[in-house]
């Protein structure tokens, strides 16, 4: 896991609000603030883990970075290019370098295309290869993800979940990108296969010097693979730190709560731990609480938490937290 300091991706105050339409004339009546101002960097060659509860906006963050959604606000720069300023065609070409492995291995593959077409299509679209060359490349890619190249004429529904996820990986790799967003690539899979896929991703990272934004919904999943970890809550980042620092010294009450929920392998130690149980439900992103997003569930919330939004500050080198009470 070699991480250097070159910043590959820079995200600044990124916002993604989905409008809500109602009525016969479909008027806009509000917005889902799925991503509501996040700022972070990803360095070349590293793996940044992104963790948060279901619905907190992880996937949306990933997709907005890749400009699969048009951001409401903020900036994304990749290798120094401001992606928001790129015109359609320029952006299309940029996609060669940044890919995504999707969360749902069932829904993300077009059921009408064979594996060969699915994996080969990016090659064709970007004129990377033509004719028989495509078939060779596809065969190679399938081999890389440990699939039988003979499967290339089959349709996705003929594969198991794990196999499909590997098809997704092969597809993402086809264009030899430098950056891949892995959106919960393993959470839809059986535990037994999860390890295979993670190992595969790690091998590939080493082999192709890939940079990952690795999304997962609990901290245990990213612990192994990440260099750094970011924690998200209701559309905002609450904490970012080096992996070991975060696990050892979580500062944000939400991170602490998440960590206390992670079972530790030693059952005795686990039993002794103090657990922070989160009360209440996650508020709706269409109508988030004022001030600190977490205040409705925060065990230590104070009055000012409702009035002003805590700044996302660097409290120690490389350790960012958004909480009024953290110094």
């Amino acid at each position: 896991m070699s991480a250097n300091n070159e910043v590959l991706l820079q995200v600044k105050d990124l916002e993604m609000h989905f409008p809500i339409y109602r009525g016969v004339f479909q008027r806009k009546v509000g917005a889902v603030r799925a991503v509501d101002g996040v700022t972070f960097d990803v360095r070349r060659g590293e793996t940044l883990g992104l963790v948060g509860e279901s619905g907190c906006g992880k996937s949306t963050t990933g997709r907005t970075i890749l400009q699969l959604y048009k951001p409401t606000n903020g900036g994304v720069s990749f290798e120094g290019n401001d992606l928001l300023k790129l015109k359609g065609e320029e952006m299309r070409l940029m996609r060669r370098k940044m890919q995504m492995i999707f969360q749902d291995p069932y829904a993300s593959l077009n059921p009408r295309m064979t594996v060969g077409q699915l994996v080969g299509e990016p090659l064709m679209v970007h004129n990377v290869a033509t004719g028989a060359e495509i078939n060779e490349r596809v065969a190679h890619l399938l081999k890389v993800v440990n699939l039988n190249p003979a499967f290339s004429t089959r349709y996705p529904h003929e594969f198991s979940g794990g196999q499909r996820q590997r098809i997704g990986v092969a597809r993402a790799l086809a264009l030899q990108p430098s950056f891949i967003i892995c959106d919960e690539p393993i959470s839809a899979l059986d535990v037994s296969i999860q390890a295979q896929v993670v190992n595969l991703l790690e091998e590939l990272q080493e082999q192709f010097n890939l940079t990952y934004l690795f999304i997962a919904h609990d901290l245990s999943m990213v612990k192994h693979i990440s260099d750094r970890v970011a924690v998200m809550y209701l559309g905002v980042f609450v904490e970012v730190a080096e992996r070991d620092e975060l696990y050892a010294k979580p500062l944000h009450p939400y991170t602490q709560a998440l960590l206390s929920a992670v079972p530790i392998p030693d059952p005795v130690a686990d039993a002794k731990r103090a657990r922070t149980i989160l009360k209440g439900d996650v508020p709706s992103p269409a109508n988030p609480p004022s001030g600190c997003r977490f205040r409705t569930r925060c065990p230590i919330a104070e009055a000012r938490c409702a009035d002003s939004r805590p700044e996302f500050r660097e409290v120690s080198p490389g350790h960012f937290v958004a909480c009024h009470l953290v110094n």
Binding site: R63, L68, G88, R92, R95, F102, A107, L109, G168, L175
Partner: peptide, 26 residues
């Protein structure tokens, strides 16, 4: 709304191809 349409976009297909080759046939 299907995920594979997003996949197609992520692949770098033009919007026209996304609609004509991926969305419409399905």
């Amino acid at each position: 709304r299907q995920e594979y349409v997003t996949t197609a976009r992520a692949k770098g297909l033009s919007e026209r191809d996304v609609i004509n080759k991926h969305a419409r046939p399905n």
